[in-house]
Write a protein that binds this DNA or RNA. Structure first.
Length: 367
DNA sequence: TCTGGGGTCCTAGGACCC
DNA sequence: TCTGGGGTCCTAGGACCC
């Protein structure tokens, strides 16, 4: 039987940092912008379990984390380190299965043909030991024939554990868990489900399917199948390359004038174009988004007549789109901007040689 | 001092096409 | 009086994830 060993690294960014600073082990450590270095609008990226005991969590505003845990050791993020350690992790995992599917920087599914649940648990144990002894990284592992169930199980295994869910016990394992533990069910969906009487996954089997559908639309079938212990595993995904690349900037203080926003758009466009060039990616759609001071968002996008690769068309489209967003806002009376972002979409791989652009224009598209 | 940055997928209406 | 129908593209926004 094909099993998924769903590996989720514990406090991943913190764990990466502790490899070079082992003396901090056992102390509250937070990866994120250090509040003692000045005002910041940032959030916690990763917190050690010692810091979590103070209530510090990922995505918590730094100002609140500082109040909850003043003695924390703050470490600025080193994303290139985390990417390179993630490659080491995948290399290590490859020894333990037929296939390793990377699912995020700190999660991967190891798929392996194994005799039974006991054999799968034994491999999970070996993986954990290897990650710990060879890479000094703690992990949690969920074991199931189903990837979604593996992910849910890995959450229950944290920190440092292994949870095995044999196929015949899937429905009973899931039944008592809060609906919020299903990947894809966030605060809004959970609230809508609760309003039709669904609090736990098992409730999906007792509430009328039409009501589930009212609450969650096309997601309903997937949810009900999961509750039965027979999740519909989406057809194995061809990885087709990235769909979008973006760059964003949140201002230290909200911005009320267009020229300042245009300067930011210029910088972001340059950064984004450089990143796309590194990956040899062309783009066809440009989106500019503004987050206003009240945290609502407005965006404008434009699809160009063909695939582009340079900073110049990216920047000029982005500037135009920003002006349009700004005009629309002027009509309704001037909120200040908190964050601006530029996104490139409908990406296409370009040959690294740098041939004539027009040969990559979408077939038949003009305008 | 509330709420980063980089992503994915879904929905829904209008345009456009055959 | 009537008002096909199915498909795709574009755009704006919502929800969610790490």
């Amino acid at each position: 039987m094909r099993w998924t060993l769903y590996v989720d690294m514990d406090a991943y960014y913190v764990s990466c940092e502790l490899r070079s600073r082992p003396e901090l082990t056992g102390r509250p450590v937070i990866v994120g912008p250090d509040p003692k270095l000045g005002p910041t609008r940032g959030v916690v990226l990763s917190a050690s379990y010692e810091a979590r005991s103070f209530g510090v969590r990922s995505a918590l505003p730094v100002s609140q984390a500082d109040r909850l845990c003043p003695e924390a050791v703050w470490i600025p993020a080193h994303f290139e380190l985390y990417e390179s350690v993630a490659r080491e992790v995948r290399t290590c995992l490859a020894r333990f299965g037929q296939r390793v599917v990377p699912l995020s920087i700190d999660e991967a599914a190891v798929e392996s043909d194994l005799e039974d649940a006991a054999a799968a648990e034994s491999v999970a144990r070996d993986i954990q030991t290897a990650l710990r002894s060879e890479l000094q990284l703690p992990s949690s592992i969920g074991v199931s024939p189903f990837r979604t169930v593996g992910k849910i199980a890995s959450d229950r295994a944290k920190p440092g554990g292994i949870v095995v869910v044999p196929p015949e016990t899937t429905a009973s394992f899931l039944g008592q868990l809060p609906i919020r533990s299903v990947p894809g069910v966030g605060p809004k969906t959970a609230e809508r489900l609760q309003s039709v009487g669904v609090r736990q996954i098992g409730d999906l089997l007792t509430v009328a399917p039409t009501r589930i559908r009212e609450a969650t639309g096309s997601f309903a079938g997937e949810l009900i199948a999961l509750a039965r212990g027979e999740p519909s595993e989406g057809a194995s995904e061809e990885s087709t390359g990235p769909r979008s690349r973006s760059a964003a900037e949140t201002f230290v203080a909200d911005v009320a004038d267009l020229p300042t926003l245009l300067l930011a758009i210029d910088r972001l466009s340059e950064d984004l174009a450089a990143a796309l060039a590194t990956e040899h990616l062309g783009f066809q759609t440009v989106t500019v988004a503004v987050r206003w001071e009240d945290f609502t968002r407005a965006q404008k996008s434009q699809t160009l007549s063909g695939v582009r690769r340079d900073a110049v068309p990216l920047r000029s489209a982005a500037r135009r789109l920003l002006r349009l967003v700004w005009e629309r806002e002027t009509v309704r009376g001037h909120r200040r901007a908190r964050t601006v972002s530029v996104s490139a979409e409908r990406l296409r791989a370009l040959p690294s040689g740098g041939r004539d652009l027009e040969s990559f224009a979408a077939g038949g598209a003009h305008g």
